[in-house]
């Protein structure tokens, strides 16, 4: 999938640029953006180290296990294949907590460690194919489950909104429903693929 996304973006940009005479802009963008990406990674490196460090403290003190337990009714429902005290389930709980609190900088490193733990759970850890649990987990993160949309509220405040947080009910409703759409469509995909697989096996 990613090869088509990546390839599609490059082909579309270059072809469009040639057609409209923007070739110079695209060549500048290609050369500059990869450097900007490194700059962005340096910023990320800082927060990855900070949150990685604090997470390790929380892990050793047993704080992460407590949070994992609190969230377990929800996480066990979504990830029934994971064992109760597995590393993956704990990391997923921490990522959800950070997302709910709106700690985007913390959610990314926590989510990455959850992905790595999920990869160790699959039968062939060397595989380059996403498991259903990995996909569900990524969908939890591409949907926004932040309780308070603080960044947007700050922007609204700066632009002179009377009540910057009055969007909250609408945001929560929209987030919740679109998360349901994501999870439901993933379940449908899983079922369809499984049915297809069964069909091919019978044919053979």
């Amino acid at each position: 999938m990613m090869k088509w996304v990546f390839g599609g973006m490059i082909i579309l940009s270059v072809v469009y640029a040639f057609a409209t005479g923007n070739a110079a802009e695209v060549s500048n963008a290609a050369l500059n953006e990869c450097q900007n990406a490194v700059q962005f990674l340096l910023v990320l490196l800082g927060s990855m180290c900070l949150w990685g460090g604090f997470l390790k403290i929380a892990e050793r003190s047993g704080l992460t296990a407590i949070i994992a337990k609190i969230l377990s009714p929800f996480t066990r429902l979504l990830f029934p294949s994971l064992k109760k005290d597995s590393k993956a389930l704990t990391a997923i709980s921490m990522n959800i907590t950070a997302n709910l609190l709106g700690l985007g900088n913390a959610a990314t490193p926590l989510g990455i460690s959850a992905m790595k733990a999920l990869k160790e759970e699959v039968p062939e850890p060397q595989s380059d194919t996403a498991s259903h649990s990995m996909i569900l987990f990524v969908l939890l993160n591409t949907a926004s489950i932040q309780l308070l949309p603080t960044t947007v509220a700050t922007l609204r405040l700066q632009n002179g909104s009377a009540v910057p947080m009055d969007i909250l009910p609408a945001v929560l409703l929209t987030s919740f429903l679109s998360l349901l759409v994501a999870l439901f469509s993933a379940l449908c995909c899983k079922q369809t693929l499984r049915a297809k697989q069964r069909f091919t096996i019978r044919e053979v």
């Binding site: 999938m1 990613m2 090869k3 996304v5 990314t108 989510g111 990455i112 992905m115 790595k116 999920l118 990869k119 380059d128 194919t129 996403a130 990995m134 996909i135 987990f137 990524v138 969908l139 993160n141 591409t142 949907a143 679109s178 998360l179 759409v181 994501a182 469509s185 993933a186 995909c189 899983k190 693929l193």
Partner: peptide
């Protein structure tokens, strides 16, 4: 970022599902 960290290149139905939610 997430699939990159897990060295996954075959993301299967992740992107279509995420985009339909968007």
């Amino acid at each position: 970022v997430y699939f990159g960290a897990a060295q996954i290149t075959k993301t299967r139905y992740a992107l279509p599902c995420a985009l339909s939610a968007d």
